[in-house]
C-alpha cells in the first residue's frame, strides 16, 4: 500500500510541477525554458502513472491521481497568487475527501 501511495505522490507532484511551470511560463514569461521543462515533468508523471497501474487497481489509481486538483489549487493560490473563490476551494475539499476515502 505504501508503494502505491508513493507512486500517487510522484504522479501528483510531477503533474503539479508541470502545470505550474506551464501556467507560470505562458503568463509571466520564461516560456522558452519553463514549457520544455514542464514536458519533462509530464513525461515523469505519465511514467509514474504506468508504474502505479502495475501494482494498483485501476479503480484506485485513476481517482487517486485527482489529488493533483488539491495540490494545484493550493499552489495556484500560494505560488501563482491566483484568486481562488469558494467554489474552487469547495471543489478541492471534495476531491481531497474523495482521495482520503480511497485509503480505506
Amino acid at each position: 500500500m505504501t508503494a502505491q501511495w508513493l507512486l500517487v505522490a510522484a504522479v501528483v507532484a510531477c503533474t503539479a510541477c508541470a502545470d505550474l511551470l506551464q501556467s507560470h511560463g505562458m503568463r509571466r514569461g520564461g516560456a522558452r525554458w519553463k514549457v520544455p521543462l514542464s514536458i519533462l515533468f509530464l513525461a515523469a508523471s505519465f511514467f509514474s502513472f504506468t508504474q502505479l497501474l502495475r501494482i494498483a487497481d485501476l479503480s484506485f489509481a485513476v481517482p487517486a491521481t485527482a489529488a493533483s486538483i488539491v495540490v494545484e489549487t493550493l499552489l495556484a493560490r500560494l505560488v501563482l497568487r491566483e484568486p481562488v473563490g469558494w467554489k474552487r476551494w469547495g471543489g478541492a475539499v471534495l476531491a481531497a475527501a474523495g482521495v482520503a476515502l480511497l485509503a480505506f
Partner: peptide
C-alpha cells in the same frame, strides 16, 4: 471507494465550474 470516486468527480466538476 465508490464514494471517493463520486466525491472526486463532484470536486473536479465544481472546481471547473468557476
Amino acid at each position: 471507494r465508490w464514494a471517493g470516486a463520486v466525491l472526486i468527480t463532484g470536486g473536479a466538476a465544481l472546481t471547473s465550474l468557476t
